[in-house]
Design a binder for these strands. Structure first.
Length: 316
DNA sequence: AAAGCTACCCGCCAAT
DNA sequence: TGATTGGCGGGTAGCT
C-alpha cells in the first residue's frame, strides 16, 4: 500500500485493515501487507506517518494499492510514477482508490482502459485524460491487472472483490462480516449521486415503496408504469434519472436484497424465500443469488448466521 | 445445460 | 425553439 504526502487516510487504512485481516479456514494470514513511501516520513492532513518500507518495496509487491490524494490536481513525484510503470510492466496488480486514479492516469496506466474514480472527480479525470473511458456509475472497474475504485467506502468493495478473486467467496464473505459490510453492494455509485432536488426525487418513491411492500407479486413494466401514472417509455426514463437503473434491474436487485435479509434473519427454506421475494423457484433464486453476490444462498446463510451464534469474538 | 420465447431496454422520431 | 412525452422496433438479457 503506497503512502504519499497528502493522501486520504481512509484510502490508505482500509486496504491495510482488510487485507491483513484476511485468513483462511485454519486461521493462516493470507496477505503480507506492507506500507511504503518515498520518504521516511509522510505528512497527511491529520497525521504524520512513518511507513516501514521505501519505494523499492514496490518492486516486490504482487498487488499495489494507490490511495487517493486530497488534492487530485497536485502532482505526484516522478520517481513514484516511474516505480508504478515499472511495476506494471513486470505484471504487478495495481489498484487505485478514489482519486488515486489520477496517479495511475499520470503514470499512463489507464490509457485506453475503462476506469472509475469518485463521482465528483470523474469529469475532471475524463477531461484531463481523454484516452480513459471514465465510468462514474460503478464502484470499481477491473481491467485484470489494473483496477480503479470510487470514493473512500468503495475501497471496501474493491478489497473484498480482490480477496474474492484471490481466495474465493467464503473468505471474502467472512471479511465482509467482520467489517459489517455487504459482500457486494448493488447499484454502483449512481445510488449515491444526487440526481435531482429531494422534492422532485420523490416522484417515483411511492411506486418504489409499493413494490418493496409487495415483492411477492409480479411487477411487469407496464403495471409499474400504470401505477406511476406514466407511459412505459417515460417511466423508463424517469427511473434512469432518479434511481440510476432500469425498472427490471431494480426490482431484481430488490428481490435479491430481500432474500439476503430473510436468509440472515429467518429459518425459512430457500423455496419459501424464493416465493416470498417473488422469484419463481428456488433454482431461480439460486441463480440470481450466485450471479449478483458470488455465493450460494446456503453459503451466505451459513456465513452470516454463524456469526450470531458464535458471538463476535473475532469481530472488530 | 440448451433452447425457445417473452419482456425489457433504449435509440430514434414525431407530437405536444 | 427547446424540452418532454409516448410509441415503435431491433437487439438481447433473462425466464420457463
Amino acid at each position: 500500500v503506497l503512502a504519499f504526502d497528502g493522501m486520504v487516510l481512509a484510502d490508505l487504512a482500509t486496504p491495510c485493515d482488510l487485507f491483513s485481516r484476511a485468513q483462511d479456514a485454519t486461521g493462516r494470514e493470507l496477505y503480507d501487507v506492507r506500507v511504503c513511501s518515498q520518504n521516511a516520513r509522510v505528512v497527511g492532513s491529520h497525521v504524520q506517518l512513518e511507513p516501514p518500507y521505501r519505494l523499492d518495496e514496490l518492486r516486490r509487491a504482487d498487488t499495489i494499492i494507490v490511495p487517493g490524494g486530497e488534492d487530485p490536481s497536485r502532482d505526484v513525484p516522478d520517481v513514484l510514477l516511474l516505480e508504478l510503470t515499472r511495476a506494471a510492466r513486470r505484471g504487478a496488480r495495481i489498484a487505485s482508490v478514489c482519486s488515486g486514479a489520477f496517479v495511475l492516469a499520470a503514470a499512463g496506466l489507464l490509457d485506453g482502459l475503462r476506469a472509475t474514480t469518485h463521482w465528483l472527480a470523474a469529469d475532471a479525470l475524463a477531461r484531463r485524460y481523454p484516452r480513459i473511458e471514465v465510468d462514474a456509475n460503478v464502484l470499481y472497474v477491473d481491467n485484470g491487472n489494473i483496477l480503479t475504485s470510487a470514493g473512500a467506502a468503495a475501497a471496501h468493495d474493491l478489497c473484498l472483490y480482490l480477496v474474492r478473486r484471490d481466495f474465493g467467496a467464503q473468505v471474502a464473505a467472512y471479511l465482509a462480516r467482520c467489517a459489517v459490510m455487504p459482500l457486494e453492494r448493488a447499484g454502483g455509485q449512481s445510488q449515491f449521486i444526487v440526481h435531482r432536488p429531494p422534492e422532485e426525487a420523490l416522484s417515483l418513491a411511492p411506486v418504489l415503496g409499493y413494490i418493496a411492500q409487495n415483492l411477492r407479486s409480479d411487477h411487469a413494466l407496464e403495471t409499474i408504469a400504470r401505477r406511476a401514472g406514466m407511459s412505459v417509455r417515460t417511466l423508463s426514463r424517469q427511473f434512469r434519472k432518479e434511481v440510476g437503473t432500469t425498472p427490471a434491474a431494480w426490482v431484481a436487485a430488490e428481490r435479491v436484497r430481500r432474500a439476503q435479509l430473510l436468509l440472515e434473519t429467518t429459518a425459512m427454506s430457500i423455496e419459501q424465500i424464493a416465493s416470498e421475494v417473488g422469484l419463481g423457484s428456488a433454482s431461480v433464486l439460486r441463480e440470481r443469488f450466485t450471479k449478483t453476490l458470488g455465493t450460494t444462498p446456503q453459503q451466505y446463510r451459513r456465513v452470516f448466521q454463524a456469526d450470531r451464534s458464535q458471538g463476535s469474538a473475532r469481530a472488530v
